[in-house]
Each structure stands twice: as structure tokens, then as C-alpha cells.
Amino acid sequence: MLLEVKNLTTEFKLKRGIVKAVDDISFTIDKGEILAIVGESGSGKSVTSLSIMGLLQNPGRVTGGQILYKSQDLNKLSRKEQQKLRGNQISMIFQEPMTSLNPVWRIKDQIMESIMLHMKLSKKEALARTIEMLETVGIPSAAQRANDYPHQMSGGMRQRVMTAMALACEPELLIADEPTTALDVTIQAQILELLYRMREKFHMAVMLITHDLGVVSEAADRVIVMYCGKIMEEADVRSLFNHPLHPYTIGLLKSIPQIDNDSDEPLYMIKGMVPNPLNMPKGCPFSDRCEQSMERCTQEMPQLREIDGHKVRCFLYDAKEGGSGKQ
């Protein structure tokens, strides 16, 4: 087990109240595994990754739980030790590569900086490694392009540079926050393929954060579906897509226009919208949009329970198991 998140809670203290962006979530990532976290805006998927990376901005704060990386609690380490770990063993790539690259530095300088910092290499060795990394991520004539500034590159190329930068120190865990959202479909395919190849090559684990179920189905080994800061469903990719359990997951899958669907029927819709985080429904956060909502759903929060390795948070499956549902 590489990373274990235990009961993580992250809150944003706003003037009008406290928003629990991430509410008591637990999951693990194994070595070499691609774990996808899917959710819509406000589901807390990005906050989860920022909490792990220690990149939360005010007024956000981790208020509970532990983040264990190779069994050591990240939040108990000193600032210096944390910094050493993050960036070296845990790396991150972001949605918009332009904002995460320094516009006044050459590509090579940005990558070399982190290599020299974390790998203790000489300038010459660092440059060689930089060019090698740029070649690995598929940048043509890497030695020349290394002298470019970020604005001289296209979006896809910048995302490759970001990836090269993140992989330069051979991290064991890569957090990719919507890495393909800002890119065109043909470029998205290139980047996904790159991530896949890099995983094979470096045996790193990837935490892939996305809203696109298509990307998940292509790339992930295991999937967590988040809604309003909670994990609603967790399963390996096959059972999630073949036998989704939670009404939210089922709704999401049905509502996406698919290329191999020829019917002219209207798309399936999940009614309503994500509840206001300051004014959450009392019971299950999805209860006000759920077609199978029962009296009980609006009153109490269902627990995440495991059925044959497939975790789901829904009262529908309490009944099927014949259990009382109270734990």
C-alpha cells in the first residue's frame, strides 16, 4: 500500500458558514495502480488532491483524518520533510499547464530546477536528464525545444512538459488533476496514452482526477465516485461500468451521449442540481435528485458498505442484504 487516506475531512471556513468540501473519506492506492476519482464540480475531488499535496489555500484546512504515505503521516512531518516528499516522491500535474509553468523561465530551467533540488545532480547531469525526460514524453527535437518558453508551445506540448517535470524525479505517486480537460480530443488521446506508458515504465501509482467517465473507463484500474464531498461508490473499473450500483453513478453513465448509441430518444437526465454546500440535505446528499429516494434517505446518511469488493453508499443495498442498515 503506497498511500492510505483515512477519514480525511477538509473544511472551508466562509463567512456564511463552514463548507465540508471533503467529508470523512478513506481510500488507498497501491503501487503501480491507476485510481480515478470522478465527480462533478463541488464533489471535492480536487480538494482531496490538494489536501494530499498540502496545497490548500486559505480558508481551506484539513480538519480531520490522516494521510499516510508509506505508513508515515504526512501532516505529522516537519515542513521540510513534507517538502522533500512532495515533489520528489509525490508529484502533481494540473488542468491548465500554462498557469503552472513559470512564463519567464525556459522549459529546461524549470525542469532542471526540480531535478537539481531533489536528485542532487550537477547542472550538466540535470540538463541531460531534462532532455531525456522531454524525449520520453514525446516532445520532438527535445534538445532544441528545451530552450523554448512556455508560451511558445501548444497546449498539448505544455501538458507534456508538465508531465516531464512531474516525472523527472521518478515519483512513486503522480496526482493528475484533470490533465486532459483543457485539451482537444485528439491531444487528449495522446496524453492518456502517455500516462499509461509512463506508468508501465516507471511503475508509479497514478491518482487521476477527472469529471470525464470516458477518460476513467479508458485509463483507470479502480474508480471512486464522489458527490458533495463523500465517496458514493468505489469499485474496480470493470464492475463499476458493468454493474454500477449507486443511482448517481447509474444516472451519470446513462446521461452521457455515447458514440455507439443510435437511438433518437432524449438523453437520460438527473433532475435538479448539486445542492448548495451551505445548505445540504439532511440525509443522503443525493436524496433530492435521486429517482429511487425513500423516506429514510432524506433523514439519515447511508454508510459506505462493501458488497463483494464493490463499495456503495446507498440504502437500496441495505435492504438487499437483509441487514438493518444501522451499524
Binding site: 491531444i187 487528449q188 473507463s217 479508458e218 452521457i256
Partner: peptide, 25 residues
């Protein structure tokens, strides 16, 4: 053809034969 094949399919069983275009627009 490339554009069609680049769309991720929501079905992990059915990994499409993908045409990955080289380079950028």
C-alpha cells in the same frame, strides 16, 4: 476517423482500436 476513435468509450471491456494522431494541429 481519427476524431471518432479518439473519443473515450464508456465501456472498459471495449477498448477501441485507436488511431492516435501524431503531433499538434
Amino acid at each position: 476517423q481519427a476524431l471518432l476513435s479518439a473519443i473515450p468509450v464508456i465501456n472498459p471491456e471495449k477498448k477501441m482500436e485507436r488511431i492516435i494522431l501524431e503531433g499538434d494541429v
